[in-house]
Design a protein around this nucleic acid. Structure first.
Lengths: 100, 100
DNA sequence: ACATTGCGTAAGCTATGGCTTACCGTTAGT
DNA sequence: ACTAACGGTAAGCCATAGCTTACGCAATGT
């Protein structure tokens, strides 16, 4: 999972405030600037982030399709889990009725 | 993140089909039975799973509150990300208007 | 009593992931 | 041209995560 690492999540979330150059993203983080670059590379590889050049800086921003895919993944994952649990609940409900 | 590891997710998802002893969960998985025990321990530590004894076997099942918490975490995480992106879209929308 | 089945746990291996430092190319300012 | 800012990438370090094997203990069957 791309968003498993807390630092990477933080990087990701910092982009929510809008497109930003690497410097700005790294500012205040407890890790070095290269570390941030590496996280950005991973995020980009996962399609969650876009990158464009603006003079000497690279501006990173959230990527719409990436978010959509992530959303779908989360949704399907969750609805699966939920369905199963509902079925589970109903079953134990029936069981408890049966016991009476 | 507890659900970062694929094997652990698989273990978790196998419980969607209902409560199961460790043996049944581990059956067919590409890892050893102790490995599964270890994953279950983590899941239990995260409150996602319950465990009860039934004779010599330990029956694991999904834990309602754990699922709720997970759901809330996912929701807040996502709505944050989404809000930010919406703001982003509106902003660039305004920008594009301005350019005309 | 004894063997067997189910499972948790300890110990140890290994791969990997995230970090740092060091370096390089590129853009921009003077 | 010189220098400085920005940031990507390589190399190497280290902690951790996940795995396996080995073992032990409780419950069950014979």
């Amino acid at each position: 999972m791309v968003l498993a690492d807390p630092t990477r999540r933080e990087v990701f979330e910092r982009l929510r405030a809008g497109p930003r150059p690497v410097n700005a993203i790294a500012a205040g983080l407890p890790v070095s600037r290269p570390a941030v670059s590496q996280h950005l590379k991973v995020l980009k590889g996962a399609g969650l982030v876009d990158e464009r050049s603006e003079g000497v800086r690279r501006i990173y921003s959230l990527r719409r399709e990436g978010l959509v895919e992530l959303r779908e993944w989360l949704d399907s994952f969750w609805s699966n889990a939920l369905d199963a649990f509902k079925a589970e609940v109903e079953k134990s409900h029936i069981d408890s009725k049966r016991k009476k």
